[in-house]
Every structure is written in structure tokens, then in C-alpha cells.
Design a protein around this nucleic acid. Structure first.
Length: 115
RNA sequence: ACAGUACGUCGGUUUGUCGCUGGCAAUGCAUAUUGCGAGAGGAAAGUCCGGGCAAUACAGGACACCGUGUUUCUGAAAGUAGAAGCUAUCAGUGAUGGUAGGUGAGCGCAGAAGAAAAUAACCGCCCGCAAGGGUAAGGGUGAGAAGGUGGGGUAAGAGCCCACCAGCAUGUAUGGCAACAUAUGUGGCUGUGCGUACCACGGAUUGCAAGACCAAGUAUACUGACGCAUGUAGGGCUGUCCGUCCGAUGUCAGGGGGUAGGUUGCUAGAGACUGUCUGCGAGGACAGUAGUAGAUAAAUGACAAACACCUUUGUUUACAAAGGCACAGAACCCGGCUUAUAGGCGUGCUGUUUUU
RNA sequence: GGUCCUGUAGUUCAAUGGAUAGAAUACGAGUUUCCUAAACUUUAGAUCCGGGUUCGAUUCCCGGCGGGACUA
């Protein structure tokens, strides 16, 4: 199984703002995906965001965040990009649904940019 | 046995694969890698109180403002903190639970209804030719109507007088550390609520995103010396006044703020657990034991299986199938309060029924 | 994380603790018109929830729920 160390995570105000200002985006229900290409040798970085407006309790947000992270870890992309997943549904999706959505999103990115 | 009530307590367990965040050890210049071990709660929540800790330019006084207000105790402290009591009141058959609590002299206010809402005379009753006077026994209203009932008394009436009862003030005795309770004597004859007023105690502000440091880089910040000025403008000390402290502007020299990033603060503490003694209790004393969550766009997980528990159905007295398994996630740390919480377990007490 | 403010008709606002919570506008019905608009008449509609204080609570107090602002 692939790992997910700290340097593969996207954080910091500047980096996040950069991604959201310059990214391409599309929806893979229940996720909205933002991504941007990076130079060849840089690490792929990713982040997850669950709006507080959709889920009031911290427990629910944590659960979704963990499920998305697990799914991302399983289907990590092979090219260098910054990627952000924003949750866009107001129901708690199952692990299966999230896995499918993440897989679909990453396949879409890799196929469009490799060819 | 069932129902209830108060207090305490638990709130899933195990295995496999993969992963995340610290700690220690080894290897390595280092990024890292390997091994060992650790990693959410009773409320981590709400932020309603109180502290620790930190920063600030905090002398003090008068008046004002705000908060609290039964007694004794506990505690570092508490402004709905806790324990055991007291008084009043509400709910309950009851165990029990909720709410309130300083003083009461003076002053102010109380819609509509009602004759009248407080030095009461509209109707009625009595005296009187009348004018006028006496009278709270009876009269709808109202949350509240001039202590209640009975008797005497009177022109008619009235605590005007008497008995009993309720309430208030006060003396004495007994019990209690005390609030207060009980008994008894005396007194006058007594409406309700709110506000104001007075008394006692407390109150600087901001909050770990406080604050400190690092490398990069630069100001009108800041520091020192000299000069100027009635230490002025302005500002701090909860507000105002007094008082007190800081204090803009020129020249020279030093110096390195904010912002973003990193490090630190950062976890051993008014700690936890067990036992003994002690106290009605909150607690206290002594002895022993084990170990230590510290993340930072924020770790503590994902998937699978088994077991335990609950519900329903079927067979039947233990199996099968299906479904469920609460509230909820640390962000500087403690003490309390409040709110959410499937399902258990223990102890005391209460009610009902049955048996002895 | 921390510090505050606020909640009244569908909407925007009123209401010393006092009788049946009041306006504007919107919606519905009617009049007018060949029809619509405008104008006029008129009906219905609300104190976020749960307790407490009080004779009486939108107002005062406590707890909960929702909405918003500031701080970085």
C-alpha cells in the first residue's frame, strides 16, 4: 500500500490561495475537485476541505476527511499536481461512494494530462 | 415482583492487513529507514462562572457604576461553585425534586374592573324635621378589600371588649456552633406587589491566535545623550473629579516592528488510582502503586472477520435470519456549572400487590 | 480558538410589565375596466423553543436552538 507522508500534504495560506485562484476544477459527486499542475520533480500535494456549514459536528467532518484521505492514498496519481477535494453534499457518503468518486477524478486528470 | 426516586459507575472486546502523529534506540552528513513502546471524553461540547500562567505605562483618595446577598462548613477561588442544615412556597400518595432568601424607617408607582387600591362612605344601616353627622356588619369587581369564627356590646356598628384560631413585634426558658425550632408571657390590632433607599462583601484590562525566540529584510517604532517646553497636545490607572505616571516635535549615535514561515510556550498537575484512618457530608490526613496524548489546514484511522449486548420474526428453550449498537472528537492547563446521551451494573429509600 | 450582538405577520419595522400585539408592503377576495395596471373596500396571517419571577411577560431572569459581526 502507498504511504502518505507529511510533505505530500498541501498547507499554508499562500499555497492554498494559489491553488484555488489558478486551478481547474470539476465535480465528481459528492466531491468538487480543484487541481493545478506542478513542475516535473516536485511532490504531489493534496488537501481535503469539509465546509462547516454542511456538517455542524466535528465528528462528521473528521469521518469524511478520513475516508477521503484513505481513498486518495489507495489511488494516488502518478503525475505531479496540487489537488484539493471539497465536499459538496450535505449527506455523509459511505466509504465505497467516496472511493469511486476519488478514483474517477484521478483517472480523469491523468488521462487528460498524459496524452 | 413491578413502578418510581436519589447517588455512584461502565459506556464495547479481540484478531488480521495497510496507514497517520509524537517519544526512545540504532544506522546515516542529511531527507529518511528499521526496531520498541505510546496516542480522545464523561461530557473533550456550551463558554455560564472561578483560578493558575502571560503581557501592559497598575501610588493613592472621594463620589458614582456593576455584581452578589439565609446559617454553619468545604475549597486555591467562584458573581446560579459544592456539602449539611433553616425558613417560605410549588409539584408528587410517597421517597424526593424545583424555585426564592440582607434591612424594611421614609418616599414613589399599581392598567381595566370596582363605591373604594389606603388618613375609603357609592348603595345600605342608624340618629336627625332638614342641613348634616355616625357606621366597615351586607353588597357584584379584583391577584389583593382593611385579620377569621362565635359571643357580649350598641341608636346602628366597629378589636370597642372577651374566648379560640392565624399572623407580626418583643421578653423568658429549653434544644442547637448558628440560621432557627418548641413552650410560655406581654403588646398593639395587622392588606398585596414592585421600585427607590440603606448596609455588607467583591470588581484593572486583555487573553496561549497571550507572550518569548530564530533566519531573511526594512520603516515615521524603540533606546541613549544633548536641546526645547509653565512637563503643553494627547494617553494609562473600570467611569468622573483630585492626584499620579507616561509623554509627540530638533540633532547625533545605536537599533530592528508588523506580516508570512519555523522554534518555543506544551504538558508532572490545587494530578490519577488503591488502601487505612477521620468527618453526617463536601472533604481532610497518611502510606503505597503505576505511568505520562501533545496535533498545527490540525494525528489518534480505513477495510475485513469473530464475540458480547439490544430489537423483531421463526422454531423452540437454545439456535437461525434480518436489522441495530448512544451522545459525541483534545487545541495552554485545572476546579465547578449547564446541556446531549442507546443500553447496562451497584447501593439506599418510597409506593402498589402477593406470600410468610 | 477567543470576544460580542441579535431573534415579532411572507418581508421591512413599532409596541413604560397592562385589556383583543400595531403599521407599511406582499398574498387572497371583491369593486372599477372589454382585459391588465393603478385606485378603492375587505379577509386571514406573527412574539424562536422550554422553564421561572409576577395578579399579568414581546418586554425582566435562567437554560437551549438559530442567525450575524469582530479578531487572525
Amino acid at each position: 500500500m502507498p504511504k502518505l507522508p507529511k510533505y505530500e500534504r498541501l498547507y499554508g495560506e499562500i499555497a492554498v490561495n494559489e491553488l484555488f485562484n489558478q486551478s481547474k476544477r470539476f465535480t465528481s459527486f459528492p466531491l468538487r475537485v480543484h487541481y493545478a499542475l506542478r513542475p516535473e520533480n516536485a511532490h504531489t500535494r493534496f488537501m481535503v476541505s469539509i465546509p462547516k456549514k454542511l456538517f455542524k459536528h466535528a465528528v462528521d467532518r473528521n469521518l469524511l476527511k478520513r475516508r477521503i484521505r484513505e481513498a486518495y492514498r489507495a489511488y494516488k496519481p502518478t503525475i505531479s499536481i496540487d489537488i484539493a477535494f471539497v465536499y459538496a453534499s450535505n449527506e455523509i457518503a459511505s466509504s465505497e461512494q467516496i472511493e469511486k468518486a476519488v478514483q474517477k477524478a484521478i483517472n480523469k486528470i491523468t488521462t487528460t494530462h498524459l496524452t
